[in-house]
Amino acid sequence: MKNLAFITMALVAGAALSTPALAYRGDYYDSRYEVRYDWATVVDVDPIVERSSRPVNREVCYDQPVDRYEPGYTARRDHTGSTVLGAVIGGALGNQIGKGDGRKAATIAGAVIGGAVGNNASHRRGDYYETSGTYVRGYETRCRQETAWRGNDDIVGYEVTYRYRGDTYHTTMDHHPGNRLRVRVDRGVTPAE
């Protein structure tokens, strides 16, 4: 019985001491016991590109031809009408004054004074009247908004191919990994976060 107990203890102790050695397989570790980190060599990196476009507004200005009407004016050169009208009115007023030969003199004096006043008034007034005008071509600056679409190529990630101990692996990453990639080695080989 003592021998049987001794043999059983020896077997249990031997099994306990040999368990880590059994778990080790070549350069890999069984994930039930240990995870380790190492470096893999990056062999290819391809960017993942998304095409996008966005509106770009800009103001476009140009000179627009515009025709404007400019009226023409002419000064009255004939002051005869005003002079005659003044003489008639002055003569009529002069005729109301005096009797006999005095009336004739007052009429003549009224006509002369009225003609002078009418002529003078027509010069001061500067009578102008519109004649035919002309159209003149000018330019006005006008602006409008235009929308153009500008395309962009945006890199949204990277397809990465890496090699670890002779085996090739693929993954997608949000950044460029460089020449080597830190990997987690357990049941498989995956990029370490």
Rank of each mutant, 00 (worst) to 15 (best):
D127H: 08
R137P: 14
I97L: 14
A121C: 15
K99Y: 05
G98L: 07
G138F: 08
G110R: 05
G90R: 01
K99C: 09
R124W: 10
A111N: 01
Y135H: 13
N95D: 12
G126R: 06
Y135T: 13
N119D: 00
Y128D: 04
I108E: 01
V112E: 02
I108M: 12
D127N: 05
A121E: 11
I108S: 06
G90Q: 10
D127L: 03
S132E: 10
V112Q: 00
V88A: 15
I108W: 10
R124M: 11
D101S: 10
G90C: 08
Y128M: 11
K104L: 14
T131W: 02
A148L: 14
G86T: 06
V136G: 01
T107C: 06
A111V: 00
R144Q: 08
V88M: 14
G91I: 03
G98A: 12
S132P: 00
G102R: 04
K104M: 11
E146I: 11
T83L: 07
L93E: 03
T141D: 05
G102H: 04
T107P: 03
Y129H: 11
E140T: 11
S132H: 06
Y139T: 07
S82R: 00
A106C: 15
G102Y: 07
K104A: 12
L93D: 07
T147R: 15
G98T: 09
A92E: 01
V84F: 13
G100N: 06
E140Q: 15
H123I: 14
V112S: 07
A87C: 09
Y139K: 11
G98P: 05
G102M: 07
S82P: 00
A148E: 15
R137F: 12
N119C: 03
G91E: 08
V136A: 04
G110T: 02
G86P: 10
D127P: 00
E140N: 13
R137I: 07
L85H: 06
L85K: 08
G133R: 06
A109P: 03
R142N: 10
A106M: 15
I89A: 07
L93T: 11
G86L: 04
G133L: 15
K104E: 10
Q96T: 14
H123G: 12
V88W: 13
K99D: 13
A105G: 07
K104T: 11
G133S: 09
G133T: 14
C143I: 13
T131A: 05
G115L: 12
